[in-house]
Write a protein that binds this DNA or RNA. Sequence first.
DNA 1: AACTGTGAAGACTTTCACAGCA
DNA 2: TGCTGTGAAAGTCTTCACAGTT
Lengths: 204, 204
Amino acid sequence: VRVDLLILCHRLCAQLKREGIETVTSAEIGEHLGVSAAKVRRDLCALGKLGTRGHGYRIGELERLLGDVLGKKRPWRVVLVGAGNLGTALLTHGGFRRRGFRFAAVFDCDPGKVGRKLGGLVVQDVSQVPTVLPALNAEIGVVAVPSTAASETARLLVQNGVWAILNMAPVILSLEGAAVINVDLAVELEKLCYHLTAAKTEKH
Amino acid sequence: VRVDLLILCHRLCAQLKREGIETVTSAEIGEHLGVSAAKVRRDLCALGKLGTRGHGYRIGELERLLGDVLGKKRPWRVVLVGAGNLGTALLTHGGFRRRGFRFAAVFDCDPGKVGRKLGGLVVQDVSQVPTVLPALNAEIGVVAVPSTAASETARLLVQNGVWAILNMAPVILSLEGAAVINVDLAVELEKLCYHLTAAKTEKH
DNA sequence: AACTGTGAAGACTTTCACAGCA
DNA sequence: TGCTGTGAAAGTCTTCACAGTT
């Protein structure tokens, strides 16, 4: 994939800038990110000429350009459905705010959770979504509900103005009119199992 | 990627079997999983001939074969480091046990968490890892600690017998001698941002 | 008739290697 | 000199299309 590299590169720029470094070569970027220097150059070059031959890339400039491409000009508004452990983890994880995401609302259908405060927001009943969401103009919805409810939840969000869905439930969402990314932790664990068994049977 | 499809296919088989269905075609699998029928056939065929022409795949057979390839013969032992919200979410999520994963231990370095019970396990201090881990023979380690501690934590796990790492912290781990998969939720959110901005600027 | 397995074509990605600029 | 930007080659993944089997 290509976007991943740009995102990691953008993050690396921020880190290097904090360390006071002003210039970086494709080889160094590759080293940090675990990819080849050629790949780094190809992907950066696709955004236009931005390095100086002989000296590498100027970090400030690179960061700014990557920020533009990745849509980092303004904070994105995110709504969360599902205030379980996973939802709470996302909400209270400071890293998102630092990276330009603002949680605008949290919903859950458990009456025991509705009304509680969580990461500075009051959990609202999921039935309030059609009332509350349109005014928030949130671009991104995070679905952190049980898999049985995921599909319905995603549809509800899209119907109420969300343009993109991050789905944490282990189901394939097929939605019209929204970008969807699935993060399925069980699948990731199973990938590791595959690697382990493949490595073992390879030995003989 | 290729393994993802096999994993999802395996999961789909289990689901269809529960529904009492005995046979499935590549087109149906593709429909459920959101990929083309040709791709399904290619990937399944790479495991050996297992469909019957004219009738599709027998689900029981397919599930068994995929299970073998993916290493589902026995439960895998998983240890978790980091008993925050994210760690707790993983630990208490019933889906993992059902998919063949068994959590063998939980560690954290926060004295306020050590000693508490979590998902049937007592949280142990992370300094106990070298004492406790070798006897557990755990294959997989999940790193759900803050990014500053992730690299060190992963190394500690690998030194004590873990073969594979699922890293939830937003850093690139470079480790010798272990398979690593990174799940970085901030990166996933940023991918969505990119899609959104790309779609917007594309309109004109 | 229905659907798999698979060559062949096409699309895309990665790597190599080096001309050209600072 | 040192490093970028980029053709060209090599490699990988996807799709097409159909022969072959049940």
